[in-house]
């Protein structure tokens, strides 16, 4: 069985690194809908793609990925909302891991909204 011992090494390593996490208000917030509607339509791998991507690219001091509940647009799930300080909120709909990867690269890192996947482009009825 794998034990928790390795965590001690990780802790020692982390304590030697200077942790300069920005105040929560300055970071980009990425919210993934994780109510029944989101989970049933595939939100878990979308959340994991975004969270792993942000962690692996060492962006946790700039981007915070978290969960939210149901915003009442269940038919558009999985939904990802991106909130950048000082900019209007962007709502991505019908997401999947591939689209999430693209949003991470082009929008969260590159700064350009991926228009094709937004709620506005989906002919909201």
């Amino acid at each position: 069985m794998m034990t928790l011992d390795e965590l001690k090494k990780i802790r020692e390593k982390m304590q030697n690194e200077v942790n300069i996490r920005q105040e929560a208000g300055d970071r980009i917030r990425v919210l993934v809908g994780m109510a029944t509607c989101g989970i049933a339509s595939g939100a878990r791998p979308v959340l994991r793609t975004l969270a792993d991507g942000v962690q692996n690219k060492n962006l946790t001091d700039k981007i915070v990925v978290s969960q939210t509940g149901c915003i009442g647009l269940c038919q558009y799930e999985p939904i990802v909302e991106v909130i950048k300080p000082g900019e209007p909120k962007v709502t991505y709909v019908h997401m999947n891991p591939e689209k999430a990867e693209e949003v991470l690269t082009r929008h969260l890192i590159g700064g350009h909204v991926v228009r094709d996947y937004t709620l506005e482009s989906s002919n909201l009825k």
Binding site: L7, I10, R11, M14, Q15, A51, Q55, N58
Partner: peptide, 11 residues
């Protein structure tokens, strides 16, 4: 040390 730091999350 937060659970979402890369090494901890991967562990």
């Amino acid at each position: 040390v937060p659970f979402d730091s890369p090494d901890v999350s991967a562990f």
